[in-house]
Computed example of a mutant assay.
Amino acid sequence: MLRKGLVITTVILLPIAAVAFFMSVHELFKMKTVTVDPKLKEISGIEFDKYKRLWAINDSGDGPILYMLNKDGTIEREVTVTNAKNVDWEDMTQNSFGHFFLGDFGNNDNKRRWLTIYKIENPIDIKTDTTEAEIIKFTYPEMGKGKVKPQDKNYDLEAFVEYKRNLYLFTKNRTQPFDGITKLYKVGDHAANFDAQLIGEFKTCTTLEKLCWITSAAISPDRTKLVLLDSTSLWLFENFEGDNFFNGDVSRIDLGVVTQKEAVTFYDNNTLVFTDEEYKGLFGGNVYEVKLDQAKRNVIKYRDRLKQDSEGAEQKRESSQLEKAPKQ
């Protein structure tokens, strides 16, 4: 009888699971715009220059090369950074002048003590196939000198943005057990050795680490919106105060089926572009586009609502204290 019940349950649930899977696939691929050149099968960072041309970098295993893409995804141009190494390039960002920053800060095993960011000139000003970089170095003071304990492994990094002449870094959490927290650090935007300053933290999820690892970040051209990317979602932060991006409004945009999504950037203040890495030639290696004014958002937190709730609680506490106070 029990076996019969299991068979019936399986027969019912399998079609439901299949439908959910194909709906998830459809959700992602309706955003697809183009497939990138196979040479960028491990695309890990993207950025648009001031002429709205898309540039990309590969993960570790490639040289210190930037690729400019045509609109059809083919490679138009390659630029080598002559004084750089690609130990583990993970993300790109730019400042208001159009200078690009290339993050060589992948740290899967949490063993790298000093990490590197390369700052290059605005790509529209690079006239040859080579350029040199200004070199920024940083370390995490909390990391210490000994072996990092499993529960403290939050020093991997694949995401950063430039904001008000500083660089803001969002860690890729590898803690054991996994606690889902990405930490926000800050360093300068110029050649120097920095101790990364801890600013804040945000929890994505605690279910499966590969579903909620932060793999890229982007900030809108008007500097009012921040986005973090994981394999299933875009996390949108708005109405933040100061440089702790996590203190404002937070919403989540579902990106459908799980793929190895590794890079995101803004095309304009309303349009996001993200990519995923190719997986054994079966899927991935694509560019996708999301319009924020058309995307379905799942609201996680409203700063104003939290502020109102806090003020209301404080007023109730004061009223209660007044009621309990002895009458004069």
Results as ranks from 00 to 15, higher is better:
Thr130Arg: 12
Gly146Glu: 05
Glu132Thr: 15
Arg165Cys: 07
Tyr155Ile: 00
Ala159Asn: 03
Lys119Met: 08
Asn173His: 00
Val148Ser: 06
Lys127Asp: 12
Arg165Asp: 15
Thr139His: 14
Val161Leu: 08
Gly146Ala: 08
Arg113Ala: 11
Tyr155Arg: 00
Tyr155Leu: 00
Pro123Trp: 02
Lys111Met: 13
Asp152His: 13
Ile120Lys: 02
Asn154Ile: 00
Asn122Gly: 09
Asn154Asp: 04
Lys119Pro: 03
Phe160Met: 14
Ile124Leu: 11
Ile117His: 01
Gly144Ile: 08
Val148Tyr: 06
Gly146Ile: 02
Ile124Lys: 12
Pro150Ser: 01
Glu142Met: 10
Thr139Trp: 09
Val148His: 06
Met143Asp: 09
Gly146Arg: 07
Asp152Pro: 03
Lys164Met: 12
Glu158His: 01
Arg112Lys: 14
Ile136Asn: 03
Phe160Leu: 13
Arg112Cys: 07
Pro141His: 12
Ile136Thr: 04
Tyr118Asn: 05
Glu134Tyr: 04
Glu134Ser: 14
Asp129Leu: 09
Asn110Gln: 11
Glu162Lys: 03
Lys149Glu: 14
Glu158Asp: 07
Glu158Asn: 02
Lys119Asp: 06
Lys149Phe: 06
Glu162Cys: 06
Leu167Asp: 02
Asn173Gln: 00
Leu167Met: 13
Asp109Asn: 15
Arg113Asp: 06
Asn110Thr: 04
Glu158Pro: 03
Lys164Trp: 08
Glu142His: 05
Ile124Ser: 14
Val148Met: 04
Asn122His: 07
Glu134Lys: 11
Glu158Thr: 03
Leu115Pro: 01
Tyr168Asn: 06
Lys153His: 01
Val161Ile: 15
Arg113Leu: 11
Glu162Thr: 11
Gly146Asn: 08
Leu167Trp: 01
Asn166Gln: 14
Ile124Pro: 04
Leu115Trp: 05
Phe170Ser: 02
Gly144Ala: 13
Tyr155Thr: 00
Tyr140Val: 07
Glu162Ser: 13
Tyr163Thr: 09
Tyr168Ser: 02
Thr116Arg: 10
Glu121Gly: 12
Asn122Thr: 07
Asn110Leu: 01
Leu167Ser: 05
Lys111Trp: 11
Ala133Lys: 05
Thr139Cys: 12
Lys137Trp: 10
Val161Thr: 13
Phe160Val: 05
Tyr118Arg: 10
Lys164Gly: 09
Asn122Lys: 08
Lys145Cys: 10
Asn122Phe: 07
Thr116Gly: 09
Ala159Trp: 02
Asp152Ala: 11
Lys147Asn: 14
Glu162Gln: 14
Lys127Pro: 06
Arg112Asn: 08
Ile117Thr: 05
Lys153Cys: 00
Lys127Thr: 14
Glu121Ile: 11
Pro150Leu: 04
Gly144Ser: 12
Thr116His: 10
Ile120Arg: 03
Thr131Met: 08
Trp114Leu: 12
Gln151Leu: 10
Tyr140Lys: 02
Phe138Met: 04
Ile120Asn: 01
Trp114Thr: 15
Ile124Asn: 11
Gly144Phe: 10
Thr139Phe: 13
Leu157Ala: 07
Thr171Lys: 00
Gln151Ser: 13
Tyr140Ile: 05
Gln151Pro: 01
Val161Trp: 00
Glu132Ser: 15
Phe160Ser: 05
Asp109Phe: 15
